[in-house]
Nucleic acid binder design. Structure first.
Lengths: 111, 111
DNA sequence: TCGATAGTTCGGGAAATCGGAACTATTGAA
DNA sequence: TTCAATAGTTCCGATTTCCCGAACTATCGA
């Protein structure tokens, strides 16, 4: 099991961020992590909306979010704790994440 | 040749917008269309940076941007004129496009 | 040491992407 | 008109990426 890779803030690529958030499951995960006041485990997302996500897929989704620089994952005992890196990204791409989260909210509200 | 499809503003999906802009060729195209003061033809993007883009791929890229609601394409004689729909999208997802274009500029500047 | 839990990795089938070749639409000559 | 040229689109096969079940790894608590 190779160690988890987290890019430095200055290496975060816009392309990777947009790609990571262009998937409904991943935005849902990211949104919850970004708005939670405590770290979220992967397990917490075994189902998103009505869909059940197999854990291999879930693991891949977390990897994409992590390697895009959107979240930070740390092992604590048997589980993984995920926190958002919104603050750091805000420094690099001001307004980007808030605008995306807001757009997501607009869409959910209007639909 | 089926007619070009343009979604209504209220049908523009965040997911589609982010996906469309998560490709380097497409952001480059969109950025130029968004900042141009006159309509751009597809032909104008036969090469992006150093790469030469085959026209079948170019056509697909324009289709993705168009169906995501980011640009409007209109046939004028033998050529296609493309303009951005930034204004409309700003009404639906405030701040989203400016934040993405700004992030793109940041990246190009820092690299 | 064993069993349980939480994730990761592997591998094969499904879906999206790329690009060359053929096709369509429009214009401007001859 | 017909023909050639230009600008895009569509088709289709090859490559790449994505999805998810099965097997594997790591850590903890009996």
């Amino acid at each position: 099991m190779r160690p988890l890779f987290h890019p430095q803030v200055e290496d975060v690529r816009l392309e990777a961020v947009l790609h990571a958030l262009s998937d409904p499951v991943r935005v849902a995960i990211f949104k919850q992590i970004a708005s939670a006041d405590c770290a979220q485990t992967c397990q917490a997302f075994a189902s998103v909306g009505e869909r059940t996500i197999p854990k291999s897929s879930l693991s891949q989704h977390f990897k994409v979010l992590r390697e895009a620089g959107l979240i930070r994952s740390e092992r604590h005992g048997v589980e993984m704790r995920n926190v958002s890196r919104c603050g750091e990204i805000e420094g690099r791409f001001p307004g980007l994440i808030p605008a995306i989260l807001n757009a997501h909210a607009v869409e959910a509200g209007a639909a």
